[in-house]
Design a protein around this nucleic acid. Structure first.
Length: 441
RNA sequence: CGGAGUAUAGCUCAGCCUGGUAGAGCGCCACGUUCGGGACGUGGAGGUCGUUGGUUCGAAUCCAGCUACUCCGACCA
């Protein structure tokens, strides 16, 4: 992409509404623009990151055997009356009336709808297990939205729903999602720690929040330092094999959010030097809730014994739009954002320091073509801005690598590669630079 | 939802207290000089001062209502 043809309205002044660093950087870099309290327009740079994240989530869901679909944002109130939640959900639910005075709502979640869809066609245990998911916009009318996209009212979420004939099957679905989440977040360069979460009236131990540690996190969390070092299961995981042990290895160590924290237990279970107390951002939440909806909505499954019983269900959410904020919170410096390779909006920032200089222009054209052909997704700054401005903007948007081409370097036969995270620069010939950059894509 | 604020140019803000024909910086446009870490000069465009009403000879300024947004708290993927 040529920057001169892109739409990336960068701000020099920091908008006053932005309190936390990720929000400020997203506004400054022209990733989002606020349209109302907790409602954001995603500008092209932000949209690219959103897509990168959604694609990673999608790939990992598919790998774990979940099946993608898409449910609507607008739902009928009657569906929610079946589960009793139309009245229970309260003011957080955005209610809408259509022209025929029918009561509708902008979905805050989809348990009712997926239950309705599955009960219509799944009758036998032979059709299970089933994990269905979608990536869709949700709306929750938060009392006080804040922190930019981290706590908006409208947000993009991946929500998956599992259906099984018995609790053992549901636990297996839970374990699959648990492990898929570890891989998903690891691919984004994040260390997400699963922490025991409140299961509400259902009880049991099958609810975990996935927490990213960050100074600006919304809640206090406590965990064993060793959890931060555990490698994710990885793409070669045998999803049909024994998953229980892998999950157990994670859940054996202490990890809890403030609401679930038991300081005596923490002290007893975790040696002093491994006790971590930090702020955390919740980026995922998985939950087993049994027959809560299937019973109320009569989603019955006939078992091998010929008896009907309500499906055993779980739901599994990932805050896709929130993840952008979380990733920035965990990856930035004074100059701007620093994207992990996998979610960067572009792979390489190509800077032409002297547009109009024929040597610079032709070297950049060659680099742009080669990087594009290699799938490195370059963003080519071909604008007439001065070098200083170009450096600042490129640092701000935080692409992992920069290829800097200017008249002085070319006169000496060199171009410069800069690593955004380390700040290291290296001067080498254009060919060598292109070989290097095209290879590690 | 309780408390506290804010609303003036694309952005950040001043002007309001003490009413008298709307300002700065940045950004934008033109020209020139520049050009390896957010350059400089000259000229220019751009605002029914959130909205409705009131007070007044006269309201960005004083008063009231409304709306939106922000912050603190309680609540949350």
């Amino acid at each position: 992409m040529r920057l001169s043809r892109f739409y990336m309205p960068v701000l020099k002044d920091i908008p006053s509404e932005a309190q936390i660093v990720s929000h400020r950087l997203m506004l400054r870099a022209g990733m989002v623009r606020q349209q109302g309290a907790g409602i954001y327009a995603w500008l092209p740079l932000g949209q690219r990151v959103l897509n990168k994240i959604a694609n990673i989530v999608r790939e990992e869901q598919n790998r774990a055997g979940a099946v993608e679909m898409l449910m609507p944002t607008i739902q009928q109130a009657d569906l929610w009356r079946e589960s009793g939640r139309y009245d229970d959900y309260g003011k957080e639910m955005l209610r809408i009336t259509d022209r025929h005075e029918r009561e509708m709502l902008y979905g805050p979640t989809n348990e009712e709808m997926i239950t309705e869809l599955v009960r219509a066609s799944v009758k036998s245990y032979r059709q299970l297990p089933l994990i269905l998911y979608h990536i869709q916009w949700k709306f929750r009318d938060e009392i006080r939205p804040r922190f930019g996209v981290m706590r908006g009212r409208e947000f993009l979420m991946k929500d998956a729903y599992s259906f099984d004939v018995d609790e053992a099957g549901a636990r297996r679905a839970y374990d699959k999602m648990f492990l898929a989440y570890l891989n998903t977040f690891a691919r984004m360069g994040l260390t997400a720690v699963p922490m025991r979460a409140d299961t509400g009236p259902i009880g049991g131990d099958l609810s975990h929040e996935f927490i990213i540690l960050a100074e600006t996190g919304e809640s206090q969390v406590f965990c064993d330092r060793d959890l931060l070092e555990l490698a994710p299961p990885g793409p070669d995981l045998d999803w049909d094999g024994d998953l229980r042990a892998l999950v157990a290895a994670r859940t054996a160590l202490y990890a809890a959010t403030e609401e679930m924290h038991d300081s005596a237990k923490f002290a007893a279970q975790t040696p002093k030097e491994r006790q971590v107390s930090a702020r955390g951002i919740e980026v995922g939440h998985i939950f087993y809730f049994g027959d809560k909806y299937s019973k109320a909505m009569q989603a019955m499954i006939t078992g091998p014994d010929g008896q009907d019983r309500p499906a055993q269900m779980g739901s599994y959410g990932i805050g896709v739009s929130r993840l952008i904020g979380a990733i920035i919170e965990a990856n930035h410096d004074e100059a701007g954002m620093i994207w992990p390779e996998a979610v960067a909006p572009f792979g390489i920032g190509l800077i032409n320091l002297r547009v109009g200089d024929s040597a610079c222009d032709s070297a950049c054209a060659q680099a742009y073509a080669a990087l594009t052909a290699a799938g490195r997704e370059p963003l080519y700054d071909d604008t007439a801005e001065r070098p200083g401005a170009k450096f600042s903007v490129m640092d701000l948007i935080g692409l992992p690598k920069q290829l800097i081409i200017g008249p002085k370097g070319l006169a000496a036969g060199t171009v410069e590669i800069k690593d955004r995270r380390s700040g290291e620069r290296e001067e080498l010939s254009l060919d060598a630079a292109l070989n290097r950059l095209c290879a590690n894509g």
